[in-house]
Amino acid sequence: MTVQIAHLYATAMLAIAFFQVALIFGAPLGRFTQGGQHEGALPLSGRIIAAVSIPVVLLQGLAILSAAGFPGLGWPVWTGWVALAVTGVSTVLNWITPSKPERMVWGPIMLVLSAMGLVVMTA
């Protein structure tokens, strides 16, 4: 069961990476990210932040997969704990953002991802 939860976590992180790609290419979703400071497409600085977040979320997914014992990874267990910590911080930030659309969409998503990461790391 833990491997399945880790797989769902990693798949969600992949979806988040695709969301970031959409932001980079100008998707008008600025109010759903980065505090909702930009209506429509993000400016260059916001797109750079989106680009930097892509490897972070992908590494988080891989770290949780590895912690669940997914074949072929074998990363140190501490990487899973770091991934869980980053997910937890992201959860808090998405719940306290001034952007209501960001809170309503990403708050629950990140809460579920934190719970999934916690299940994997404590199994």
Score class of each variant (00 low, 15 high):
N94C: 12
L118W: 15
L93P: 06
A63Q: 02
S53G: 11
M110A: 05
A17L: 06
G36V: 12
H7C: 04
G107T: 05
V21A: 01
Q4M: 15
S99F: 10
T33E: 01
K100G: 02
A68P: 08
T122L: 14
L44K: 08
W78N: 08
I54P: 03
M104Y: 12
P28V: 01
T79G: 00
G46I: 10
L8Q: 11
W106Y: 12
L62K: 05
G61S: 12
A50D: 01
F25Y: 15
M121N: 07
W95K: 04
M1C: 00
A85I: 11
A51H: 03
L118A: 14
T87N: 14
I96P: 10
T79M: 10
A68N: 08
I64W: 02
M104C: 05
F19H: 11
T91H: 10
A12G: 09
L29H: 09
S90L: 12
F19E: 02
L93W: 06
T91P: 02
R31V: 11
L59V: 11
M1K: 14
I24K: 05
L29P: 01
A67P: 06
A85Q: 07
A6R: 07
T91G: 10
P108D: 12
M13S: 12
L44G: 00
I24W: 08
Q4T: 13
V105L: 13
I48S: 08
P55H: 08
A10T: 01
A12F: 12
L118N: 00
F32L: 15
L8K: 02
L59S: 04
H7F: 15
I96V: 15
I48F: 15
H7W: 15
P43Q: 11
A27Q: 05
P55N: 04
T79K: 01
I49H: 04
L14E: 07
V120F: 02
F18H: 00
Y9M: 08
G46L: 09
L14N: 00
I48D: 13
K100A: 15
V52A: 09
V112Y: 02
V92F: 12
